[in-house]
Amino acid sequence: MAKVFIYPATSLILSDLVARFGHQPLGAALSIRERIQTAGVESPPLQITPEDPKRGLKYAAVEVPSGVRGRMAIYGPLIERAEAGVIVTDADFAFGCMGCARTDELILFSLRQRGIPLLELAYPKDEEEGVAFVAAIRRFLAGLKEGGQ
């Protein structure tokens, strides 16, 4: 089983596909759950505190907007843990949606820099492309071994 970062990180469909084919999806839910379950923190709605943008300084400089650094405090550690990644570009909002384009650019760059196996594919436009889309993801995940080799 490999740890697979999913993009869009909020995509439940992608998360489910990765889990269904026997790997551990790394997405937004993991980090948000961690924060929401932290007792004593009172920072609705996501329990992200002003400390998170400061932790995000590890991934982006201080002149980068706080929203980008706060998001990177969520996704940066997941990217570091990832052993593989599935990237879906131009996804429909309903498939999974990330709020900030600058963060998206940084996430994708960081993933590519890691040198881990990555599958990058465009969101399907019709049923035929949809079948090929799922098959491609399945093939990629089936080829991943323990540790993403």
């Binding site: 009172e42 920072s43 609705p44 709605p45 996501l46 992200i48 505190t49 002003p50 400390e51 998170d52 943008p53 907007p65 706080s66 929203g67 980008v68 706060g70 998001r71 969520i74 709020g99 900030c100």
Partner: peptide, 14 residues
């Protein structure tokens, strides 16, 4: 808005 919940300031707005 864009970003206050990820900057940890949404509660300040509330």
């Amino acid at each position: 808005a864009c970003g206050p919940e990820y900057s940890g300031v949404q509660k300040e707005i509330y």
